[in-house]
Design a protein around this nucleic acid. Sequence first.
DNA 1: TCACTAATGTACGAACTAGTACGTTAGTCA
DNA 2: TGACTAACGTACTAGTTCGTACATTAGTGA
Lengths: 221, 221
Amino acid sequence: MTSVDEPARPNGRIRDAARTKAEILDVATREFARAGFAGARVDEIAARTRTTKRMIYYYFGGKEQLFTAVLERAYGVIREAEQELDVEHLDPVAAIRRLAELTFDHHEQHPDFIRLVSIENIHEAEHIAASEELGRIGSPALDVIRRILESGQKSGLFTADVDAVDLHAMISAFCFFRVANRHTFGALFGRDLVDPAQREHYRNMLGDMVIAYLTADRSED
Amino acid sequence: MTSVDEPARPNGRIRDAARTKAEILDVATREFARAGFAGARVDEIAARTRTTKRMIYYYFGGKEQLFTAVLERAYGVIREAEQELDVEHLDPVAAIRRLAELTFDHHEQHPDFIRLVSIENIHEAEHIAASEELGRIGSPALDVIRRILESGQKSGLFTADVDAVDLHAMISAFCFFRVANRHTFGALFGRDLVDPAQREHYRNMLGDMVIAYLTADRSED
DNA sequence: TCACTAATGTACGAACTAGTACGTTAGTCA
DNA sequence: TGACTAACGTACTAGTTCGTACATTAGTGA
């Protein structure tokens, strides 16, 4: 996330629309992720920036639109990361495993993003629906999966009938759940899914699961 | 969930503590699931019951404790369902598949429960932590998984090193994500994970995934 | 250098919202 | 049958929270 700090002019205020907007988005991301949409406080967000509440309304229009902007930026970060995906020089099995691991890493490194997505689902994705930007972005990762799958299926390594969106859902489900449901799962089963000591274990488990699914012989059913 | 309706006495009020409590819990479940903890309105809950806000405070003490009570009951429903799990007469492969399918079905049939759990995770499971009842319940499903795994491993059907809690996490992740993230996933990828026409497809996918993972040969890595 | 506008700050209000003080009544048990 | 209490209702308040009216200033282009 774009964090900004520079020596504020001794007395007078500095004018920098881009910086002010970015700072509001930074703080708002944390506040919405912390407390949910209804729980987040516009006054609290304003207090934690170097500007005032007035500016939130000036730049974003309202709480609702601010949340949408926060979501847009958060999804933008993922999209960028996905665009740098470079796994297609690997053989299909290694490529899928690597892609799954990168999803695993990204989710782990962006718990606020996970929380925002959970929150947006409580609101039935109404902000995504209201956002032009979010409506039209595809998923670079999906294209990558599509190509790897095709190549793996052609060479007979993978079971024929697996769909890219489904595989993406499977990988996301594992990675998302691990971070999003960390707290209830920990409280109920006494196991921290995000324990650093278990990180490699779960990372391998994900890869094993996906590869096992893709290479399994399903004729026996 | 315990829904209650009976002919209200023409004029006078009826006194039935159990019914009043249950009715409050019913309505509160829906309201919290709809809007999250902070977004839920105590007045709204009261308005939708046949009693008044006063009673919510009389019986539960406050909004926070009401949410905890709602969670306790919701988890109670799952626990009951899990106690009726009857799969151990099946061979290990069929038993695990059946167990996964029952989890799949239960999650699908209780979207409000899924939402409550998502909400509780936003609040870092603080209500579960505050609840004696929820702290001490184990998971009947977990015991079942443990026994099936052991039997499957003993007979050499399953890979040796799989842990019951991990397998439970894997199954839950798939089932939970499908329901919880339905809206954002649908908005971004144009696919409804809970589309009835795709139900059997995803139900099979889950079973295939779990069995493939459990029976895969991991020696080659 | 001056006028003009984008950017900013202050102060305030209207509506909402969790929670409570106080009064009432239905059922029950001695 | 009468007294006692659990169960219930009404009306209100204190504090919060989103949003805005109004005033101000920094930068910029003519």
